[in-house]
Design a protein around this nucleic acid. Structure first.
Length: 286
DNA sequence: TTGCAGAACTGCATACCGGG
DNA sequence: CCCGGTATGCAGTTCTGCAA
């Protein structure tokens, strides 16, 4: 619905945009053709130049332009136009504090390929890989994942960022990623009940006890998060179309599930869940 | 020209909430 | 637990269209 958006023009808010839609001016081309007589001149020149520019920026595949002009709560509108350049991103760490904690794994998904990074193996490849994308989608990544990555790798993540926490909150879905998934009927299969804190224990089991199955379970969890981010993005996009003139026209199809390279190991999950073992040196930091 | 209403925008303070 | 991004609410300002 980006090409039906007028809110990124200075002086046009959601109300004016709605009146434009009501007049049958549904897209940028409509405005450039039809609004010429009705729109007042001084602001019309600015609007026209921004809309012409907008068309060029979409064709050139540059989401940054809209990132700067759109109000942040409407950034979800860019998704279909820039989906091919979008990466879904999630990190796992040994805790919440950037100063004292380290990144254990990173999962990156572009809608087709899944990439994973492991501390001590290939974590250093991440900063270069993320440069291939122009848009990132996360859950609460604006306050956690991105600052953590920037600090950890001493890099700046410039990508246009759709943080689903705020998109879903605005739609009434709150209580964290897992709760949003539950409310929207997304099933986690064998990873039910595994959360971020649990992932800290999986990493500890891998490091301290050499349990390779714990790392596989952690990666399965990390990857499930990013794969589900795409599902949530599409669901949120479709829900946001409700109440607009474009309801029933622009809905996106649900993505198909990719091949998942790791499976959760139930005996490991059970062992940790029932408290039989807690990593001693990790427990103080959590 | 003047006054009014509506819309957008800015600048505050406050509150909430989510990550591992 | 902590911290930062965002939402909300409110007041004040600016801009524009419209009508008197």
């Amino acid at each position: 619905m980006l090409k039906k958006t007028f809110c990124h023009v200075p002086g046009i808010g959601i109300r004016t945009e709605a009146t434009l839609w009501g007049k049958g001016i549904h897209g940028w081309e409509d405005f450039l053709e039809l609004a010429q007589k009705t729109w007042p001149l001084p602001s019309r020149k600015l609007a026209e130049s921004i809309l012409v520019q907008s068309l060029e920026q979409v064709n050139q595949g540059n989401p940054d332009y809209f990132n700067h002009l759109l109000p942040s709560h409407l950034i979800w509108r860019i998704f279909p136009e820039f989906r091919a350049q979008t990466a879904y991103l999630d990190i796992e760490t040994t805790g919440l504090d950037v100063e004292s904690c380290q990144i254990t794994t990173i999962a990156l998904y572009d809608g087709t390929h899944i990439f994973h990074y492991v501390q001590g193996e290939n974590l250093e490849a991440f900063p270069e890989d993320i440069l291939k994308y122009r848009v990132i989608v996360t859950y609460n990544g604006k306050t956690f994942d991105v600052p953590f990555l920037e600090r950890y790798f001493r890099i700046k993540i410039y990508q246009t960022h759709i943080d689903l926490r705020y998109v879903l909150n605005a739609l009434g879905y709150k209580g964290g990623l897992k709760n949003c998934e539950t409310l929207l009927g997304i099933d986690r299969g064998g990873l039910k009940g595994v959360d971020g804190l649990f992932s800290v224990l999986l990493w500890a089991d891998y490091i301290q006890n050499g349990n390779a199955k714990a790392l596989e379970t952690l990666l399965a969890y990390n990857i499930m998060d990013v794969v589900n981010l795409e599902v949530l993005m599409v669901l949120a996009y479709n829900m946001n179309l409700r109440g607009t003139p474009f309801e029933g026209q622009l809905e996106m199809a649900m993505p198909s599930e990719p091949f998942l390279p790791f499976y959760p190991h139930q005996p490991t999950i059970e062992k940790i869940r029932h408290g039989g073992w807690v990593g001693a040196s990790f427990s103080g930091k959590i």
